[in-house]
């Protein structure tokens, strides 16, 4: 199919989809509707579970099975990236050159690093209380580490980033989530059931299993994102040499 034929085909199809979609939307409840049956039930269940942040309660308690799947996707893509971005026989590692960093940049990074790390831990720890949680905090933690790259250079990042260890940590955290679910089964309740004491509403230890799973997710996300970025950084900054087998210049 030529490019223009392809675009024409697509535009025709897209026009049809657009017409039906617009008509479908006229059948929807209007924006801002008051009817949210599942949402209302979820809020009620959250309050029963002594969790202040409803979204965390849904993610780590009511629909924790979704999150289990989601964290498995993260584990899968970390493993996948490890497999896909491995250094093949025809590639070599090289050490990126010494980098000149402005003293102000270095200062900025050095000062910001602990602040960012603390912020990350705070966001993870307060997941059941305030907006944020394992995922958001994990991302902040991972980004914090990469401030080292801004502050110094790739070599110092590599030094403070024990990748093999983090690989393991990521897997252990993912396994911990799965295993925490078994706690319910062992105590005679259901898989992933929130069997821990629920604690006092609006305190750090409230929500039973929620903060625990939250922490496991935080660790997994932080280590997973660091490992993912590590593979990409490695390829982008410290790998060279490859062989292209076919098709150079052919059309």
């Amino acid at each position: 199919m030529s490019r223009s034929a392809r675009v024409r085909l697509f535009l025709g199809a897209a026009a049809a989809i657009a017409v039906f979609y617009v008509l479908a939307c006229t059948g929807l409840p209007h924006f801002g509707t008051a009817a949210h049956p599942y949402g209302d039930r979820a809020v009620a269940a959250t309050l029963r579970q002594h969790t202040a942040n409803t979204v965390s309660s849904i993610n780590f308690d009511q629909r924790a099975f979704d999150t289990l799947g989601e964290e498995s996707i993260l584990l899968g893509s970390v493993l996948g990236a490890t497999a896909l971005l491995r250094r093949t026989d025809d590639e070599q590692e090289f050490t990126p050159g010494q980098v000149r960093v402005l003293p102000s940049t270095r200062l900025f990074g050095t000062l910001l690093l602990p602040v960012a790390l603390l912020t990350g831990v705070y966001i993870v720890a307060h997941g059941q209380l305030s907006p944020g949680g394992g995922f958001q905090g994990g991302v902040v933690l991972a980004s914090a580490l990469h401030l080292a790259y801004v502050a110094a250079d790739y070599r110092s990042l590599k030094e403070i980033r024990p990748r093999e260890l983090l690989d393991g940590v990521d897997a252990v955290a993912a396994g911990a989530f799965t295993t925490l679910g078994l706690a319910g089964l062992i105590t005679g309740a259901a898989y992933l059931q929130n069997v821990l004491p629920l604690g006092t509403f609006n305190t750090l230890s409230s929500g039973g299993l929620v903060p625990v799973i939250n922490a496991a997710v935080g660790v997994e996300v932080a280590s997973g994102v660091i490992v993912l970025l590590a593979h990409f950084l490695d390829q982008a900054l410290a790998t060279r040499g490859e062989r292209t087998t076919t098709e150079r210049g052919s059309s």
């Binding site: 949210h36 949402g39 309050l47 942040n53 409803t54 849904i58 993610n59 979704d66 609006n202 996300v221």
Partner: peptide, 27 residues
């Protein structure tokens, strides 16, 4: 839908879709 400094009786938006979107973003 966060009740840490709001009354448990306040009107909130649907939290379920937020949880779904969160999952979706990670995916």
């Amino acid at each position: 839908p966060v009740f840490s400094d709001a009354s448990p009786h306040s009107v909130v938006v649907d939290p379920v879709v937020q949880a779904l979107t969160l999952t979706d973003i990670v995916v």
